[in-house]
Each structure stands twice: as structure tokens, then as C-alpha cells.
Design a protein around this nucleic acid. Structure first.
Lengths: 103, 103
DNA sequence: GTTGATATTCGACGAACATCGACCATTGAA
DNA sequence: TTCAATGGTCGATGTTCGTCGAATATCAAC
């Protein structure tokens, strides 16, 4: 993969930014996959869009402080950023619960 | 005001739609004002944008099932839609709490 | 009626976004 | 040292979004 791991400081992350990032069906689907707390690879995420498009969504989630990307070799392990819960306690949980009960 | 009351069925409201609606600073500010559970008038909302712009944001919130508009005379009373909490339990509360603790 | 207050709609604009295909960068292995 | 695999970046394109001012609709009060 190309370099890069631009993760913002949690203090710089705003609530509208986070909600906006979660307010897209594909990105929400990504977060749902990550909700088990484990690291996941590209293969676990939706193939409903082009790879480049998914990259874009990942970038959005990363820049909103929602996910953490850890490159390893040619792979890229993605997980939820736990610090997000320090900044906005209970928020992600509430969103995931809402997502689960609305299915 | 022009006749209007396009409130969607709660069942048709999607989570991304709600999150997207809340993912804007001005709309979030509106929801914060409404968080006391009471009805509010235009005058209570931010004057930082043009009236027409605020109308637009109100429409977005209405169509996302977040707020309820009740015209009365020339006024327009706006409040949070309580059914939203039936559809996505705890969501709005979590967002408002996150908003409060991040200030 | 006419006027004034209040809110929505309309038409327009630039900015931001989602999407794609094509290309580039990094790495591990043949 | 090539090569394939993985994933990120770039440029283009069409769409949506936030914003405004102006026009319109509604109602109250005179």
C-alpha cells in the first residue's frame, strides 16, 4: 500500500464531522463490520463499490477519527478508534445499537 | 408561511439519513435548542444564516424524521419528534450528550 | 381590502462529495 | 530483480449540499 496514516488528534475531531462520516450507508456498513472490536481487512468490507471508492470512504472515516488504519506489509488492518469513545462517550455504541435494531 | 407538513412515516426514516441530518453544525444547533423537549419558534434558532437557509435546514431535519413542525397562524412551532426515539432508541440522547460533553 | 409579519419556495451559485478508471507506491515472493 | 498483490492517489464527471436574495404564500390586524 502507499504510505500514509493520517490520523487526526482526537481533540480536533468535531461531532458534526463524526455524524457526517457515519451518515453514509457504505461507511456505516464498514463500521458495522468493525463493531466486533477486531481488526479487519479490505476483504471483509462491502464490494459494492470500486476499490478506489472504498479507499475514499476509509479516508473519510479515518479523518473523522472513527477508524484506525495499521498498514502491515501489503495489507491494511482497520479497526475502530477506541479513543473516539473517550471524546464522545457512548456515541458509537448508540449508533450501532440503532443500526442493529433498525434492521 | 406556506402550507407544509411533509413529515415522513417513521418506518421510512433510515439511520444514515438521520445521522446525515445531524451532521451539520447549524442543524445540530437547532436540535440542541429543541433538546428541552419544548416547542420553539424561529426566533430561538441561530441567526447566523439567512432565513431561507434555515428553512432549508428545517426541511432537512423534518424529512429525516428528526423534528416536527406545527404551523399556527403565521408562526411555526418546531419540536423534536418523539417517535424518533422509538425507531432509534437512545440515539438522539447520545448525540446530545456527546454534543454537551464536547463543548 | 391593504399592510406587515412570518415562513417557505425558487433560482442560482460555488463548494464539496461519491463515483469511477487509470495509474502509482510498497511489499513479499518467484 | 522482476512480478503479482494490495491498496492508495489522481483527474474527471455528475450529483448533492449549503448558501443567498428575491419572490411567494399565509395569516393577523388595521
Amino acid at each position: 500500500m502507499a504510505r500514509q496514516a493520517v490520523h487526526p488528534e482526537m481533540a480536533d475531531v468535531t461531532l458534526p464531522q463524526v455524524l457526517s462520516a457515519l451518515g453514509d450507508p457504505i461507511r456505516l456498513q464498514v463500521v458495522r463490520v468493525l463493531s466486533d472490536g477486531a481488526e479487519h481487512l479490505r476483504a471483509d468490507f462491502p464490494h459494492t463499490v470500486a476499490d478506489s471508492t472504498l479507499s475514499h470512504h476509509m479516508k473519510t472515516l479515518r479523518e473523522a477519527g472513527v477508524v484506525f488504519s495499521r498498514p502491515e506489509g501489503t495489507r491494511c488492518y482497520v479497526s475502530l478508534r477506541s479513543e473516539l469513545d473517550d471524546r464522545f462517550p457512548g456515541l458509537v455504541r448508540a449508533v450501532l445499537d440503532a443500526d442493529a435494531t433498525s434492521a
